[in-house]
Design a protein around this nucleic acid. Sequence first.
DNA 1: GGGAGAGCAATTTTT
DNA 2: TTGCTCTCCC
Length: 718
Amino acid sequence: MEQSAESLTPAQKKAVYHFEGPLLVLAGPGSGKTRVITHRIAALIEAGVYPSSICAVTFTNRAADEMRQRVIAFGLRRAQSSRSAGGAHISTFHSLCVRILRKYAEQAGLRENFSIYNGADQKSCMKQALKDCEIDSTNFPPARMLDAVSLLKNALKDVDFIKGHADDFFTKVVVRLYARYQEILAANNALDFDDLLLKSAFLLRDWPDVRSELNQRFKFMLIDEYQDTNKAQYRIARDMVSEHGNICVTGDPDQSIYRWRGADIGNILAFEKDWPDATVVRLEENFRSSPDILTIADKLISFNIRRKAKVLIPTKPSGREVAFESCDDETEEALSIVKRIAKLTKQGAGLNDIAVFYRVNAMSRALEEAFIECKIPYQIVRGVEFYNRKEIRDLIAYLKVLVNPRDEKALLRIINTPARGIGKTTIQRVAAYAGVKNVSFYNVLCRAEKVESLGRAAKTKLANFAKMMEEFKKDENPDGIGINVAELMERVYQGSGMAAELRAGTSEQGTAADNVNELINSAARYDKISEDGSLLDYLQQISLFSDSDAYDASRGSVALMSLHAAKGLEFENVFIIGLEEGILPHARSSDNDEELEEERRLFFVGITRAKAGLYISYAKHRLLRGQLTRTIPSQFLYEIDADSVLSEPEQTSYYQEDSQVSDTQVDFTPGQLVKHESFGFGRVKEFVDMGENSVVVVKFDTGQTKTLMLKYAGISKV
DNA sequence: GGGAGAGCAATTTTT
DNA sequence: TTGCTCTCCC
């Protein structure tokens, strides 16, 4: 299956066989990076390195699975499972951290059975923090506060540190919330995603013997997608190899698209400074895309100023085609894609050779409608959707409480689901009692009869609930190891009354029951694969599932996904839609050049996923929050010289009345020489007449092409 | 205690 | 446009 090492290029060979010391592999898109990494793991093992002393870190679970399978394809069965002691450890950063934190829970100041809180749980904790601190959630929306806290954590700033550095009002509010938020997490015996990294980084920093042990344990570290590591990940990586320096990182600065999550492109740019004796290998040949596609990618990315220049060397023959399409609105855009797909399949393309990328997930809607109507099978790559379903979250919440009774978020979710007559008042009284006695909520349930404020009926109901939960626990091994997760799940499903409720109901509840069955099936698969699996391990694993993990290449359907989710994938034919100002680049990133460059990299990632066919489209009108909006073509289209589609004469304008108003401004014709106060001189490429909202596209002498609103830009004719 | 309906807000990307 | 929360009423 996997080709032998002889077929590697000299540069690839160097990256594979340079074992000792720090190694930086600067790998362009389609340069065979994944192949290099798997060959490297295989080569290390062949050279006599114990598989269990190799640790490879990937960006997504899907990438980890894929890599494991590739390593197995080499016949290295011992690397099969990340959890089997004999194999190489291949996982995401987050999974690795869970493992480390469980092993060194005591030093990290944790209980081993911690829950992992995802977006929804985090939001709920933040809301509670806002309430506790008496901060108005209209001025300080929970989502934004979470972002602020998350950025602090990713930069390794804990509450104590930031306390001393809070000068302005906003930061002071954030600090108060941060502190309270952490208290709430701690009370629930829970960690959020960022905590996994932060606590691991601090563990390694503060415990020399732990650091040393991990250095001994993993003699060879490999980190993929290094350009998207944040400060916490950077420190973890550094400390895990501090004694031997056998670290190999791979990445491409041009593909860094997670700045908003705290990723620091500086980590990869400064690798040679961190490790002065580092060897650097560049993989610049591209084995994926046609020369036409690479030309476009190259043109686009060269507009970024903050980058190390790099060439993309094509090795593939010319491919199918690169096409630009301008459509009237998103429905027409979807239909044109459907038509194109029909043509491609007629020419012999499989549906799983085709993908559509968009900037925001909401844009999948028009596509879905068109695909359903035309009966084209498709899959939306949004894996967490499944685990976000109510019935799934409910059932999992039961299991979470069994493992971690302190998890109040989970407990409150299920205490009255399905309805068993335990209402708001009762819950408040229990919570009050727990607060006064300083014990956990679950603890109070187990001795409900002692709570004076409760009526007799409420006491009985609570006692029954507690009894039920204890029954579930009974058959479980005390250490939870070797337990059959699927069986327990089934017992909880029946015993809790969830099954009865879903069985009784409507067709909607029928699909809910199907979903539960699917969950139980997947748990059964987990039971089979993991020999030392436990309920705790299962729960912690599924908490780390992510969107792009759900992509299944064998499904024979067109893949629909966000540009972010497309990272690391490749397809024969790629459609990228919505090349409009405000969408790509996204409106939230237009005020800042660094963010604009990240949007450009995002588009670059999308383009370079394509092997042969690349179809880029924009719609002149788009439905945004239910309103048909006139759009402006993305400046990126000008940067890749897609002018031909853009210069089409505008015929049936929806906005004819408007254009009459603006007669005075209308003579910005293409070719006109203009001056802008900060960008200097340039020539008009296009003028979009939208009355007082008219827009000019100007190519400035600096090489930049800008799309500017006439009324704000302060442009004058020369 | 529970459900239905009205009114309201918010709308990027994800481990 | 959607989806969420809060309130009111049974």
